[in-house]
């Protein structure tokens, strides 16, 4: 749930998402769910020339499994907290595994 928890804090931030088919989409992250499906608003496709079929798309729902990268606004990430959250997650996982 770490990533879910993390992406939840990025709602209403502008993120750039690169899909596994190389399409890169910048937009406002509206919501994310536990499968890391993503809802983007006010989207803008980078390299729109290559993907003209997306030129009229204004918002989209992206299935989590097709996402390659999510590029985040750095200022919105609390690194120290994220480290701790990661530690907790690891501890939780370890606890569950045993």
């Amino acid at each position: 749930m770490l990533f879910f928890s993390f992406f939840k804090t990025l709602t209403n931030q502008t993120v750039t998402i690169e899909l596994k088919n190389d399409i890169r989409i910048r937009g406002i992250l509206k919501s994310v769910d536990q499968y890391l499906n993503i809802k983007l608003d006010d989207i803008e496709v980078l390299d729109l020339d290559k993907y003209p079929h997306l030129s009229s798309v204004k918002n989209m729902f992206i299935r989590g499994s097709v996402v390659r990268y999510v590029m985040l606004p750095r200022s919105e990430v609390d690194v120290g907290l994220l480290e701790d959250a990661t530690r907790r997650e690891a501890a939780n996982q370890a606890g569950k595994a045993r």
Partner: peptide, 16 residues
């Protein structure tokens, strides 16, 4: 435990 980052982040920065 499940949602640590979000919870604390929200407290620190004000939840979106």
């Amino acid at each position: 435990a499940e949602d640590f980052y979000y919870q604390v982040y929200s407290q620190i920065r004000g939840a979106p």
